[in-house]
Simulated scan of single mutants.
Amino acid sequence: MPRSRFLLKAPLWGLALFTGAKSFIANPLIGSERLNRRGLHVWRVKAASRIMRWRMAMLSRGVPTAEREAYLRDGYLLKQNFLSPELFARLKAELETVHDHGPGEVRECCQGDTRTHRVLLDPETLSELPVTKQVLADPQLKRLLRFCAGHRRLPIVHLEKVFNGARVSEEADPQKSLHVDTFQPTMKFWLYLEEVSERNGPFMFVPQSTQLNKGRLDWEYHMSLTAREHTNRYTQRGSFRVEGGALARFGLNAPALFRVPANTLLIADTFGMHGRGPAEAGNSRLALWGMSRTTPFLPLPGLGGEWLNRLQYRVLKAERARDDKRAAARGVESSWHVVTRDSSRGQDPS
């Protein structure tokens, strides 16, 4: 890169260190072996975690102590029989029709032999789904999600259907390898609408891997020195993949598989080491899915309110429309592209 261009962009790269930017190849400062050898990446990890703990403490009121302690200790929270049997039956009946009949558009992401379908449950779509709207409006659930996310803004929610072994691919599904999403705490949740086992792909998580103990920090330091030149493109972009033998080498726990019945709520911090477990080809699983990733160095838990909730969905839809337009100009599909319901069964037509 010409020196003049480097000097022009350097202030922006410097400011990005205090945002959620994570790519080791897009930002030469984040990817600098020299700076990371002196502790830049580990400092960002520590600072983001400490600030998140501070924000979570401000949002802890009304969340049972046992649930707070479990999430902070283990990096996840598991609640079976989350809804009453009657309410869960109504929720499942309502959402089982959404993927095939609407409302909302179906978007698909293809990774390896897996097709993942999601329907965005924005306020307009929820207005046609009264049971789902009731469940998501529950004050106790909202308090819990805000605490785990460390922010007053509620997560963006989708209906998610994962089709395993649904397409021919020479590449492996990157979600089926242990990894971390980013350097900062990130909350994701699943309310499973059907039983989950090795048949359809259980969630995989390394318990307590969100703890900033010596092993985890040593692993972060090690990865920060090699990420920019790593052979895995996801690691290069800041979503580190856990290499074989790393858990034992750095003294971390073995991964656990979450085989759970329907009507189980799982909330996980995907800064922890996690992945999609093994599954049999031709099987799928259906869940209410949500995610919240906030600005990592914001010391306060931000704003909430319905207006902000609506705004974040509008921003996401605008970003997807932009991605569609850019992909179309290149003659390809965007990573999350719209599929028609006639072709949204998740199976490879070949």
Rank of each mutant, 00 (worst) to 15 (best):
residue 6 F to W: 08
residue 6 F to D: 08
residue 7 L to Y: 05
residue 7 L to W: 10
residue 7 L to Q: 14
residue 7 L to E: 14
residue 8 L to V: 05
residue 10 A to F: 08
residue 10 A to C: 03
residue 12 L to A: 13
residue 12 L to G: 11
residue 13 W to K: 05
residue 13 W to M: 00
residue 13 W to N: 08
residue 14 G to M: 12
residue 14 G to F: 13
residue 15 L to Y: 04
residue 15 L to P: 00
residue 16 A to F: 06
residue 16 A to K: 05
residue 16 A to Y: 01
residue 16 A to R: 04
residue 17 L to S: 12
residue 17 L to N: 09
residue 18 F to D: 07
residue 18 F to V: 13
residue 19 T to P: 11
residue 20 G to N: 14
residue 20 G to E: 12
residue 20 G to R: 14
residue 21 A to I: 00
residue 21 A to E: 14
residue 21 A to S: 12
residue 21 A to Y: 10
residue 22 K to N: 14
residue 22 K to Q: 14
residue 22 K to M: 01
residue 23 S to A: 03
residue 23 S to P: 07
residue 24 F to T: 09
residue 24 F to V: 02
residue 25 I to K: 02
residue 25 I to Y: 12
residue 25 I to S: 09
residue 25 I to W: 03
residue 26 A to P: 09
residue 26 A to E: 14
residue 26 A to D: 14
residue 27 N to Q: 06
residue 27 N to R: 10
residue 28 P to N: 00
residue 28 P to H: 08
residue 29 L to F: 04
residue 29 L to Y: 01
residue 29 L to I: 05
residue 31 G to M: 05
residue 31 G to T: 01
residue 32 S to Q: 02
residue 32 S to Y: 02
residue 32 S to E: 08
residue 33 E to R: 15
residue 33 E to F: 04
residue 33 E to H: 11
residue 34 R to T: 07
residue 34 R to Y: 03
residue 34 R to F: 08
residue 35 L to R: 02
residue 35 L to H: 01
residue 36 N to A: 06
residue 38 R to V: 00
residue 40 L to P: 13
residue 40 L to A: 10
residue 41 H to N: 09
residue 41 H to I: 08
residue 41 H to Q: 00
residue 42 V to A: 10
residue 42 V to S: 11
residue 42 V to G: 05
residue 42 V to E: 12
residue 43 W to A: 15
residue 43 W to E: 04
residue 44 R to H: 04
residue 46 K to L: 15
residue 46 K to A: 15
residue 47 A to L: 15
residue 47 A to S: 13
residue 48 A to N: 00
residue 48 A to W: 06
residue 49 S to Q: 06
residue 50 R to W: 15
residue 51 I to L: 14
residue 51 I to M: 06
residue 51 I to G: 10
